[in-house]
């Protein structure tokens, strides 16, 4: 995951500097906002001198998909104290979500339990899972800051032909694998991928939200209509 994030931070740092954002503010954006695509869009808007309210509104729309992540991890965090929820919500970037949900799912299949532990035995191990979330989140946060700083200083000198940014989609490809466990999840993935490709031209990454919602809908439908048993 870190391999995928690093090039993006480099590119962001270089672009932010080109857009005329002061280095300290560019770094602050990485630590306060912590959202790659929103930062890229924000940087473009800063560069063309867009009004502040528009930049903030755009950030909100671009990051709406995180509401799905919030809903997706919420059942696993329901038993934590409020201060844990406040902290982990801050760290919930695309990449952190991808790592954390993969981890939660794997633990779930291993112990055969649901999000909320059923027995005392499960509880001890499951109760440690938020530490994985924290560890992943803090590591990604640090990588994002370091790569932004690197980008501000050397980013413009990395040749475009290296295509380092391709490492991030590859990371997501790797993480789709554990997320696809049956026919319905496979259908959800395929449908979402198709819509994402077709709707990619839409502004503000709205295509991503459309893709996710379509994928979820197709997944539910597929689950409800299992393949017919062959006639004798």
């Amino acid at each position: 995951m870190l391999l995928g994030v690093l090039p993006f931070g480099l590119i962001y740092g270089a672009l932010a500097l080109q857009a005329g954002i002061p280095p300290m503010a560019a770094l602050a954006m990485s630590s306060i906002v912590l959202a790659g695509s929103a930062q890229f869009v924000g940087t473009q808007l800063f560069a063309v001198g867009a009004p502040g309210a528009l930049i903030i509104l755009t950030t909100f729309v671009v990051n709406l998909r995180h509401m799905l992540y919030s809903a997706s991890v919420a059942p696993y965090l329901s038993r934590l104290r409020l201060r844990w929820k406040l902290l982990l919500a801050y760290l919930l970037s695309d990449e952190a979500y991808a790592m954390v949900i993969t981890h939660y799912r794997e633990k779930e299949t291993q112990s055969g339990s649901r999000a909320v532990p059923q027995s005392r035995n499960d509880e001890s191990e499951l109760d440690q899972r938020h530490w994985f979330f924290l560890g992943a989140g803090v590591t990604l946060w640090t990588t994002w800051q370091v790569s932004t700083a690197l980008g501000i200083y050397v980013g413009a000198r990395i040749p475009e032909s290296w295509n380092l940014e391709f490492a991030l989609p590859l990371t997501f490809v790797a993480l789709v694998r554990p997320a696809v466990t049956d026919r319905a999840t496979a259908a959800a993935a395929i449908a979402a991928g198709m819509v994402a490709v077709l709707a990619h031209g839409l502004a503000l990454r709205l295509g991503l939200i459309m893709a996710a919602v379509t994928g979820i809908g197709i997944g539910i439908l597929t689950e409800r209509h299992p393949p017919r048993a062959p006639r004798p």
């Binding site: 998909r65 799905l68 992540y69 809903a71 997706s72 059942p75 695309d94 979500y97 991808a98 949900i101 993969t102 799912r105 999000a115 940014e165 391709f166 991030l168 989609p169 590859l170 997501f172 490809v173 993480l175 789709v176 997320a179 696809v180 319905a184 999840t185 496979a186 959800a188 993935a189 395929i190 449908a191 979402a192 991928g193 198709m194 819509v195 994402a196 490709v197 990619h200 295509g207 991503l208 893709a211 996710a212 379509t214 994928g215 979820i216 997944g219 539910i220 689950e223």
Partner: peptide, 21 residues
């Protein structure tokens, strides 16, 4: 809701990767 949330990871992860590929 829980049934629907099961499909968030495969849908979102594929949607994040597919356009770049």
């Amino acid at each position: 809701v829980r049934r629907a949330l099961r499909f968030v990871p495969p849908a979102v992860l594929t949607a994040l990767a597919a356009p770049a590929i």
